[in-house]
Design a protein around this nucleic acid. Structure first.
Lengths: 189, 189
DNA sequence: CCTGTTTGCCTAAACCCCTTAGGTGGATGC
DNA sequence: GCATCCACCTAAGGGGTTTAGGCAAACAGG
């Protein structure tokens, strides 16, 4: 009986690929076992179960996304940084829809603690440093940027922009432009 | 053998309640049958299956949400209309998290056609009439508003705002204020 | 009233996914 | 070369989904 050489890491990676192919919600311990030509029970020596698998995929996706964003941000500031951040996010979501969905999984506190979530928040704040905001405005802005990016990607992915002729690309560029302006100018009283 | 008086409508309504209680992803034909004290197979005379059930709940949620927004919008314009729209959306999501998730389900084209989705888009455009934008800017703005609202609600629901002391309420008000300003002022060249 | 039809709910059965308990044999270490 | 370990296996129980076919309550026409 040849050994398949399973490890938690290989299973997680394969699970992430599976997610991109069939959708995160269809990632299943059984499907993963089939992919390795192994019996389902065999995976339980490496994973605690399906919840564990999903969590691991989410952590992988958060890490990958954080790396990409960090690369994109290197050496940029202000509007350039904003655009680089936004594009890194959107590109990742388009290339890896399953992983992106996984990254949005609600994690239990321990998983959240060892996730790259904190790094994401820090990077968003780093962008805003170019716009000199003071608290609590900086937090408001972090939340607004997160909402726009996630909301746009999510609506685009669920087909919400398909019934209008205007290319999604153009609306994205327009939104970034207006967000930059919004952050640059002090509120008008 | 007493009859339970099942209909597709009652099942859909009960499914929506179930979604709010246990989360849309845990709505199951079996759980619904238990709720009516009836065998699972009995539901198949009223529903085509679990996919059909989920779709019906999504359509119900879209209808309810459209009604609420229409009420909120009545007699308002400009910034008032924007705020009313935003609050109607967010309140619905907080009162009915399961239904709100259902409303975001990707519908097949036929279901989408008979959904209230079109009405939602029309109402968003109605708000923007107070800001006199021309195409394609109006479409860009529709998409931006949709992204912010959906993104904010979604991040808030998944706990993304819980690790900072600033109340989510305040950031929401701030975002609406800045969006209003963004829409009122012509882009600076 | 009562008989024939409709229809609402049931049993039975097949199939897929998740999870745990306990076994076996190939790889590894002394 | 023997003991140990661990990677993968079989077995079994518990859900959820879906279809096929049956029975009896509700209903309609004569």
């Amino acid at each position: 009986m040849a050994r398949a050489g399973l490890t938690a890491e290989r299973l997680t990676e394969a699970g992430a690929e599976l997610a991109d192919e069939v959708g995160f919600e269809h990632v299943t311990v059984s499907a993963l076992a089939r992919r390795f030509d192994v019996k389902v029970a065999s995976l339980y020596s490496h994973l605690k179960g399906s919840h564990d698998l999903r969590t691991r995929i989410a952590l992988l996706a958060l890490d990958e996304l954080a790396d990409r964003v960090a690369d994109a941000l290197a050496g940029r500031a202000g509007r350039d940084a904003l655009a680089a951040f936004a594009h890194a996010y959107r590109d990742y979501a388009r290339e890896h829809p399953g992983r992106y969905t996984a990254a949005r999984l609600r994690l239990d506190p321990e998983a959240a603690a060892r996730s790259a979530g904190v790094k994401h928040a820090q990077m968003t704040r780093a962008i805003l440093r170019g716009y000199d905001l003071t608290e609590p405005e900086e937090t408001h802005a972090v939340r607004l940027l997160g909402s726009v990016f996630h909301g746009y990607i999510s609506l685009e992915a669920s087909g919400g922009f398909e019934h209008t002729a205007v290319p999604a690309e153009e609306s994205w560029a327009w939104a970034l432009d207006r967000l930059d302006a919004l952050l640059r100018h002090r509120p008008t009283p």
